[in-house]
Design a protein around this nucleic acid. Structure first.
Lengths: 345, 345
DNA sequence: ATTGACGGTGTTACCGGTAACAAATACTAT
DNA sequence: ATAGTATTTGTTACCGGTAACACCGTCAAT
């Protein structure tokens, strides 16, 4: 059995409280006593029981992180940057992978809420389905949404400007001379809707007609992008430039294009979004719209820590933080030879 | 404040114990009472306090997962498969990223041990440095090592046959006619040592001399592979075939090769290990030695759950599970056009 | 000498569950 | 009728911490 406060107290012939105070650096303790306590604690290899502490203080020093797809380097990177903020603050992270399953997300979030001090959630729910979250937040749940926003929730959000993501991608294709531009849409989510909206706005801005048959739903996964593009090509009438909802979908589409004997970047231009890991090392390096995931994760973690400390109240109790996206031109869009391979770390 | 057992007990005019029994499906409770309790529990949206439960039962239903590099899809995939076993068993996962830092690993492991029921660790420690782990395990810590083994630790391990990994990779290059084969080694770890050993055994088996100047240390990261290969090429005298310690290192090396104006798979053959995500979508698809990460993670999780349930005792208390590796031929090794792009999911 | 303030320590109760045992009730067997 | 048994519920104590407050000795101010 591990050492407890009582063991140390017994060893030194003092009360548990004195030990507790020494361990937690309370000001009102004799420096000499504290040294003696810490000495014994070290000798007995004492580690506080987190659960007992959590029970007494109502603070677990655990954060929950809920993501739709752990295999996507996008979320792995968010997780890492969140951890880089959480750890120095003494928090550990409980992760949960929902596999884009809304039901699973809700039940996991419920379970996590009781065990942690707060949650960062990249939701797989449709943006309008906010009843459950609304309830939880009203009951005091500390939740920060990341990446995917839900409509009208009084809750901090860290996201990018997805309309601008769609615009940047589409305008890039327009600037390369394309007049017929397709879009592979994500599943109904604010992210997908906004990128689609940006796509339409870019068309409108350049006086190009919007053609509904050029926008197809494919989800956010590689498999969806592959299937959608494969079918599109098989049907015979496909656009020569496509903005895909995100990088995995773009990569799937690229596979379908190559399988059909077409050349990405020459016969068909592709732009993705999200700067996947190794996107610059692909057979045809992927042009994409990206934003700093490090910033995004850090911002979310910092907001959550403030929320937990009740440092977010009053008017700005639910900040909305937007990380600006930028275009990264590589070869998949057919834009010259700009995207030289460079050393990365 | 969230609902507690006492709230429900008060509401129904019975004791806390009855509620506890109803919630936990104890056999010795009246079916009718249980229904009434569950009804009220649902109405009040009761969720048990995990910390109180953990304190009382000494079971937290948390598992710790310690990895050296969250951004490597290898560990992300392990994490996902571990979760797929843990969740149905009612366990949540606390992750910790050590960034290959041994000191960080030790302190995190210590902290995690008190808060969780058991740990799965992909250690960044040198394989001989087992003093700390030895101590923890003697004190009853439930730890399963994954991917990276430590020497002579009485502790379950799930790994692959890394000697065979080295042999498969090297023999593949030999079979392609290479007689001068280089090796980019990982940092001192059992994994690196075994792959190196396999490399040497393959050479010996085919009566090729081992030349120490052809084996360079580069670590397990992309940056290390890049720098090592860049320097090697700059020096002028480099082998025409290289087995890299793992896929990220191989990809780094590939970058260096391309920057030098050489063609991967033609001027210089590269083989990696570990089947990184999108390895088949790279500019030159990467030949690699791989094994099932799903199997590996699941095995580790299952062993840990047994360990926690004390179902592992006696002679086989520390099983060693080996997941067999296999060669995946693509184009980076220059082996014809075998590695066709295929649809994946 | 008395009062008050202060630094340091101990006491008690409580956080929200659960184990172990006691007790009440109904029913069975003799 | 009585003891014995099974079923269901309640009581008490405890898991390992912490908050709030009580307490004690010492010293300074009056």
């Amino acid at each position: 059995m591990p050492t407890t406060l009582a063991d140390i107290a017994h060893e030194l012939g003092v009360s548990k409280m004195t030990i507790s105070r020494a361990i937690n650096n309370h000001p009102e303790i004799n420096a000499d006593t504290r040294h003696r306590v810490l000495e014994v604690a070290r000798r007995l290899n004492y580690r506080p029981n987190q659960h007992a502490r959590a029970l007494a203080t109502n603070r677990s020093y655990l954060l929950g992180m809920v993501v739709p797809d752990l295999m996507h380097s996008y979320y792995a990177e968010l997780l890492r940057s969140i951890e880089s903020v959480a750890r120095p603050a003494g928090f550990q992270i409980v992760v949960c992978n929902t596999e884009e399953d809304a039901g699973r997300e809700l039940s996991e979030v419920q379970a996590l809420l009781r065990g942690t001090d707060g949650l960062i959630v990249a939701s797989a729910l449709p943006p309008a389905e906010t009843k459950e979250y609304r309830k939880m937040i009203k009951e005091g749940a500390k939740i920060v949404l990341i990446d995917r926003e839900l409509a009208n929730l009084h809750c901090p959000v860290v996201t990018t400007d997805n309309i601008r993501v769609g615009m940047l991608a589409t305008e890039h294709l327009i600037s390369l001379g394309h007049r017929q531009i397709g879009h592979l849409r994500g599943k109904p989510s604010a992210v997908a809707a906004d990128r689609f909206e940006g796509y339409k706005q870019a068309l409108a801005k350049h006086a190009l007609p919007f053609n509904a048959s050029l926008a197809r739903e494919c989800g956010f996964l590689e498999s969806g992008g592959y299937e959608a593009m494969r079918d599109w090509i098989a049907e015979g009438c496909f656009p020569k430039a496509v903005f895909a909802a995100n990088d995995p979908a773009a990569i799937g589409a690229m596979q379908a294009i190559e399988e059909a004997g077409l050349r990405v970047g020459h016969d068909l231009a592709i732009v993705g979004a999200g700067k996947i890991h190794y996107g610059d090392m692909l057979r045809v390096p992927l042009t994409t719209v990206s934003w700093s995931l490090a910033e995004m994760g850090q911002a979310a973690a910092e907001v959550l820590l403030k929320l937990i400390d009740n440092k977010l109240s009053g008017p700005k109790s639910a900040p909305r933080i937007v990380i600006a996206p930028e275009l990264i031109v590589r070869q998949s869009s057919g834009a010259g030879k700009t995207g030289k391979t460079k050393a990365r770390r």
